[in-house]
Amino acid sequence: MSAVAKPMNNDAILKVEHLSMRFGGLMAINDLSFEVRRGEITALIGPNGAGKTTVFNCITGFYKPTMGMISMHQEGGKSFYLERMADFEVTRDAKVARTFQNIRLFSGLTLLENLLVAQHNALMKASGYTVLGLLGFKSYKDASKEATEKARYWLEKASLIDRADDPAGDLPYGAQRRLEIARAMCTGPELLCLDEPAAGLNPRESQELNKLLRSIRADNGTSLLLIEHDMSVVMEISDHVVVLEYGQKISDGDPAHVKNDPRVIAAYLGVDDDEVETVRHEVEEGAN
């Protein structure tokens, strides 16, 4: 298989190298390189239109990058070049799951059904690619029961168990976000990519979300890559922050480092490049 790469650095679960994405005349991402380390929560931040969602779309196979390499290194030692794989293969084989900035649930299916659809590939195998399932074989019934249990586990974890049999479209906004995360987790990913999971949440929901994300990392050993606008969320839960502006990386490091990086402050406050030096002085003075 051409999509399988040699296992490289054990520490990095995802490596993005020299990634570029061009839309006509617009360089949405320009020569971006960064790493997501195993077992960590990595945040990708940047102002509106910086190209964060585009990076996600390249990682998860929805866009084919103009240039660059994205490699995924699984725990078992298997590695994949994601830019060569179709979008559904990225989830199925490379075990990278994602959520969307504008929530994409199956609104007419119940919560339970949403989580069962996420276990499609495992259930498909158990149903003998439909044939055995159609004939009512027991192996499918067992697998189906197991899948329901897994769904129940995630519904409980996302505190959605009371609404298990309601249509997903009937949930309030914050619950829909949690359901989308639970659904992504049901695919059994090693890396979970979340596109602005805290957008539109109230402070209480935001706290619940942080708890859920921490427990996903602690209990399930899943590494996380998340896009976030809310700096307080980023500072609170992430181990590592990558900052993007106009498709280029302007900072990379732990939250404290990034928070004090004058280029980041400039980007967020909207200061011109030649003023960065002034800002740097101000920051240094403030630190003293």
Binding site: T91, R104, L105, F106, G108, L109, A118, H120, A184
Partner: peptide, 10 residues
């Protein structure tokens, strides 16, 4: 319901 979401689930 949603084709893109389907693909994101493998």
């Amino acid at each position: 319901e949603d084709e893109i979401a389907c693909r994101s689930l493998g």
